[in-house]
Amino acid sequence: MKTLSKDLIELAALFAAVAVADVFAGALGHGQHGSLILVGLAAALVVCSAAHRWWAHRHVRAPRTPAATGDTLWRIRTTVADSPGRLAALCTGLAELDVNILTIQVHPLGDKVIDEFLVVAPFDVTGAVLVGAITARGGLGTHVEPALAGLFDEAPAPANPA
């Protein structure tokens, strides 16, 4: 139902935009230099769109550094059994602490894997608390260390859907 009403609103907005464009084009088209003005406006629109697209892709904004919000960046490295649900258990343990997982890397080692996380934790969540949460969920030999905010200096370019 929501999709249908949203589609109807978008369709109504499209019809309103076409009506306004028709009135504008009709008024200019019947004037002395109306067609030249319309061509000039179309060219200006194309140039402005191209300039905006170029500017947006050249000046990609880096994500806000979590350290600036009072949160703490941590690197976590742990070994777990390579079985279904182990990674989910670790992620659940972190989520219960309101920890945001930024990246995960999994390195297979036969019947075990090494999971590496880059996370943002609330300021009051210490390294010892993180180790405890990971160990309680099956992590072995867990190593936790503060990460540097400089990891966010170079943001990856956004994916181009085209």
Rank of each mutant, 00 (worst) to 15 (best):
G40L: 04
A68R: 09
R53S: 10
D71I: 04
G40Y: 02
T65N: 15
W74A: 12
V23Y: 15
A21C: 13
A62H: 04
T69N: 03
D71T: 11
G70K: 06
H33P: 07
C48M: 13
H57A: 09
A67C: 08
A67E: 07
L38T: 05
V46E: 05
L38F: 01
G34I: 00
L41H: 01
W55Q: 10
G29F: 00
P66F: 08
P63R: 11
L38C: 02
L38V: 00
G31S: 14
H59Q: 12
A42C: 09
L28S: 09
D71H: 14
W74S: 08
L28R: 06
R64I: 12
A51E: 11
A51G: 12
H59Y: 08
V39Q: 11
A50M: 06
L45H: 04
P63C: 09
R64K: 13
R53A: 14
R53Q: 09
R58T: 00
L28W: 10
H57Q: 10
T72D: 11
L38M: 13
V46C: 08
V23K: 09
L38A: 05
A43S: 08
A50W: 06
A67G: 05
L45I: 08
L36K: 03
A62P: 04
I37S: 00
V23N: 12
L45K: 05
Q32M: 12
C48N: 03
H33T: 11
H57C: 01
V47N: 00
C48Q: 08
I37W: 02
A50T: 03
H57T: 09
W55F: 15
P63M: 11
H52L: 15
H52P: 05
A43R: 02
D71K: 12
D22Y: 14
V46M: 07
H33S: 11
T65S: 14
L41I: 01
A56P: 01
A68C: 06
L41K: 00
A51D: 06
A44K: 00
L36N: 13
A50L: 09
F24D: 04
L36P: 05
V46P: 07
D71V: 03
V47P: 02
G29N: 06
